[in-house]
Design a protein around this nucleic acid. Structure first.
Lengths: 149, 149
DNA sequence: TTACATATAATGTATATACATATATTTGTA
DNA sequence: TACAAATATATGTATATACATTATATGTAA
């Protein structure tokens, strides 16, 4: 649906401004979708993202700062997200023996099982996007890369 | 910069998934930019957005729900954002005499002055986007509209 | 070796998001 | 008129964002 209808705004001061608003609005819309999918599993989009980052490391223990730099939101607080995942027993966490400032973090079987259970539903969400062709999706992605300089 | 470098991820399961991540990442990046611009003014991006919505009504008193439906983030809590703006004395708020469930909300001169002061800096931010041509910006915007169905 | 800068996490505080629930008021209808 | 339903807003609670500060460990230069 056109942005103008979604937020009931007739016009924008420039195409650039309209694009800013459009990106923010679309992101919020995507977050709402994924929040709803994840809610029954008792997990938030940010926690889900951290679990996927951990799985991507193939059982190699990683530090909090490595997770942080791979997160979508660089300002979020990886330390507290990891706390939550630890409380829910989806990860293991221990002090790194080589450098006791660091934590060694690793996803466990329960965490992997959760991801496997959730993933088909999240893929369905990505399918919402099929209103765009592969070429269009690729084009938007490339232009977003370009936009960020 | 390419998304792959920004979040140090080598590949994505599909162009569609890459696009989801790219939109979320770009929105977070934009939020960070505008947060930093607004910080010296003691205001958040969401509060700034509400002030602009109010100005758009040209001194016509509006309800909390009208503001909510124009907000970028439909799940945010307009009632509490308005509280903050009222505390900072940028808006007036009184019960609507025709319907005492509603609030009549209006931006005051202090609020308008604040917007006027901030706006040039925010426009500069939109200019970051000038790495895209007008046609490219328009194209991305149209495709985002299409994507949301 | 100490002294000090830097690195890594954790913690504190204010605000926002997400969603459920409560309260007041108005409207529709039996 | 009486009362159920709908509407408008406020409030409560858990989590996340944004950013400053603190605590501890490590590296390095004098």
């Amino acid at each position: 649906m056109r942005l103008e209808e979604e937020i009931k705004q007739k016009s924008f001061s420039s195409v650039y401004h309209r694009l800013t608003v459009n990106i923010l609005f679309t992101a919020s819309w995507l977050n709402t979708q994924s929040s709803r999918i994840l809610k029954p599993f008792g997990i938030t989009p940010q926690q889900f993202n951290v679990l996927r980052i951990l799985r991507g490391q193939n059982q190699k223990p990683v530090s909090v700062s490595l997770i942080q730099e791979r997160m979508l939101d660089k300002n979020s607080n990886a330390s507290r997200l990891i706390d939550k995942l630890f409380e829910k027993k989806y990860i293991e966490r221990k002090t790194c023996p080589e450098d006791r400032r660091q934590m060694d973090i690793i996803i466990n079987q329960k965490g992997l099982d959760l991801l496997a259970e959730i993933e088909p539903q999240i893929q369905q969400m990505d399918n919402i996007f099929k209103s765009l062709s592969v070429d269009e999706a690729k084009l938007v992605g490339d232009l977003l890369d370009k936009l960020r300089g």
